[in-house]
């Protein structure tokens, strides 16, 4: 259904400008420190993977970035703007889009309507314009629909535009979430386990999709457990364990890092 997977071999040169900067980010829930003084940088145009064992605090970092949680300490800067205290929809409007680990679609709405949600903040029409169906409102609606259909085309769901989101196959639901996120015209796309629950074929297609998103100039930060995907798609990995960062570097460096090996496989004397 999707284009043949293209290994990310011919990578565009990474510009060194940081798009997203996390500095000393800390979040505690009650007595539990979910994220402990985490700092890293996502360079513009790169694909960065955030990995680590279950419960390492990866999703919490995502929720801090998109404003679902407030950090206890630390700073998050996006394209030179501090995200401190901003509500989620404001952060989305600044150019960060996200998907969710456990797919969160608008189940009883159509695929097209789901993607139109991403167009929402870029539109202006209010109650009165809608009731009077002003020409400007109709133009705006048609433009948004065109854009939404383009994003559906991009992820390969154009033919399913009019069916309900809940009736999509699992892998298609993940791709619909990505289309909805892309419709917000992000500079940074944050993917929470995009290959979760996907079979081998779907994962291959996803790797192809990620490289095509990147080719559009969109920076990607992703959480993933599928190591094949991480190794092939990302040029930088950040490894978390128990809320703290234990390693950062290229996939090859990280794979050889003794601390990472220990975190994933455990030490010998534990056995």
């Amino acid at each position: 259904m999707m284009e043949a997977p293209s290994a990310v071999s011919s990578r565009p040169a990474i510009t060194a400008t940081p798009l997203l900067t996390l500095q000393g980010l800390t979040k505690t829930f009650g007595g539990l420190t979910a994220v402990d003084a985490v700092s890293f940088v996502v360079e513009e145009g790169s694909v960065v993977g955030l990995i680590g064992p279950n419960g390492a605090g990866k999703t919490t970092v995502f929720n801090l970035i998109t404003g679902n949680y407030r950090p206890d300490r630390g700073r998050i800067e996006f394209a030179g703007t501090s995200l401190a205290g901003l509500r989620t929809h404001r952060i989305i409007a600044l150019g960060i889009a996200r998907t969710f680990q456990n797919i969160r679609l608008f189940q009883r709405l159509t695929v097209l309507e789901n993607v139109l949600a991403g167009c929402h903040y870029q539109m202006r029409g209010g109650i009165l314009a809608a009731m009077l169906r002003l020409p400007s409102q109709r133009r705006e609606e048609n433009d948004a629909m065109g854009r939404a259909l383009k994003e559906l085309e991009f992820v390969g769901l154009r033919q399913q535009a009019l069916i309900l989101a809940k009736n999509l196959a699992y892998g298609d639901q993940r791709r619909l979430e990505i289309a909805r996120a892309l419709a917000t015209r992000p500079r940074l796309l944050v993917l929470d386990e995009p290959a979760g629950g996907m079979n081998e074929q779907e994962t291959e297609a996803l790797i192809g999709l990620i490289s095509r998103i990147r080719a559009r100039g969109i920076t990607i930060l992703l959480i993933e457990h599928d190591m094949r995907l991480v190794m092939r798609a990302c040029e930088k990995l950040v490894v978390l364990e128990n809320g703290g960062k234990i390693a950062e570097g290229s996939p090859e460096q990280v794979r050889r890092d003794p601390k990472v090996i220990e975190a994933y496989l455990g030490t010998e004397d534990e056995a």
């Binding site: 989620t88 929809h89 608008f106 949600a117 929402h120 539109m123 029409g125 209010g126 996120a181």
Partner: peptide, 24 residues
């Protein structure tokens, strides 16, 4: 049939996803 009407439905279906799609 408008942005406003859809926004209300996004709210009903999933508030977190709605906010996460840029809806106030």
């Amino acid at each position: 049939q408008s942005r406003f009407g859809r926004a209300l439905n996004y709210l009903r279906e999933d508030e977190v996803a709605a906010e996460g799609s840029g809806i106030n």
